[in-house]
Design a protein around this nucleic acid. Structure first.
Lengths: 149, 149
DNA sequence: GTTATCACTTGCAAATTACAAGTGATAATT
DNA sequence: AATTATCACTTGTAATTTGCAAGTGATAAC
């Protein structure tokens, strides 16, 4: 007798988002992909916030289950896997950008200070910029490098 | 010898946001205030997702510590407290709206279907709408009632 | 004066997380 | 070809957090 729990507490749109990425780790994976161009388990593991290996594995699996990430074989190294954002995942970029905006405003030590041009661009046109960035991320490029002053 | 841990894993802007509201409950409180006009502990407790009393209390305290919420005495009933969003909290409305947008797109059962006009408005002008809504929320009004078709 | 409501706190079992130590597969080196 | 290193995990366990039930003290209503 399997307990088949969808985990869905409600279909309130805010809650739906929280069920998908409402924890302290999941969006860091997305950040690593979008801002830093990371693609492999080992890359994510190196993040400064310090993923525990089991947490990282479980979050990656969750993201794949939800259709936000896709896992493919790495072409030139059979040990590695390549994680790629789906359309559903790419559509979280505007949300990521809003977090950046808020933190840039309220964290006095924010590293957002090092990417003022990007922050300004987000503020003026989150949606438009997101569309451009989605294309960049599709090509596997992180966006941070090009914006560091 | 008190262990004074700021909890800050990094000053990456995405991480800063996650440290403030990166869990399955915190943003539901904000949703209740913004969309449903809730203001008291008892109101939040009635939410369909089912807060545990201790979790709700700890999240409210956390939000106050971070300066996102303010707690005041309820004017006409000494037993109640009134929770109000600060400017820092009101500035999370655009983020809340982005979550709504994403969930409206990807949850086939989303209750966002019942507020298509609002969703469309967010899509066209999140920032502009947010500014208007902030004023409404300051007056203690929830925005959902006016948009339900 | 008694009962009800409100905003919590407390205690405890269950679930989740963090940390350390593997494991099996593939790749690089000798 | 054999050995060592790297990679993406899994497993075990202790510590922390959550979820649930049952209070508690203050104020309000009757």
């Amino acid at each position: 007798m399997k307990k088949r729990n969808t985990g869905l507490r409600s279909h309130c749109p805010v809650n739906f988002g929280l069920e998908a990425f409402g924890d302290r780790w999941t969006l860091l994976i997305l950040r690593d992909i979008v801002f830093r161009g990371k693609r492999t388990y080992g890359d994510f593991l190196k993040s400064e916030e310090g993923f525990a290996t089991n947490i990282l594995a479980s979050r990656l699996e969750g993201l794949i289950e939800e259709g936000i990430l896709r896992r493919d074989a790495y072409a030139t190294d059979g040990r590695k896997d390549l994680y790629t954002l789906t359309e559903k995942g790419l559509d979280l970029i505007p949300l990521l950008f809003e977090i950046v905006l808020w933190s840039a405003k309220y964290d006095p030590r924010s590293e957002a200070r090092r990417i003022v041009r990007l922050v300004e661009h987000i503020r003026k046109d989150n949606r438009g910029l997101s569309r451009k960035i989605m294309e960049q991320v599709k090509r596997g490029e992180g966006i941070l490098a090009g914006y560091l002053s």
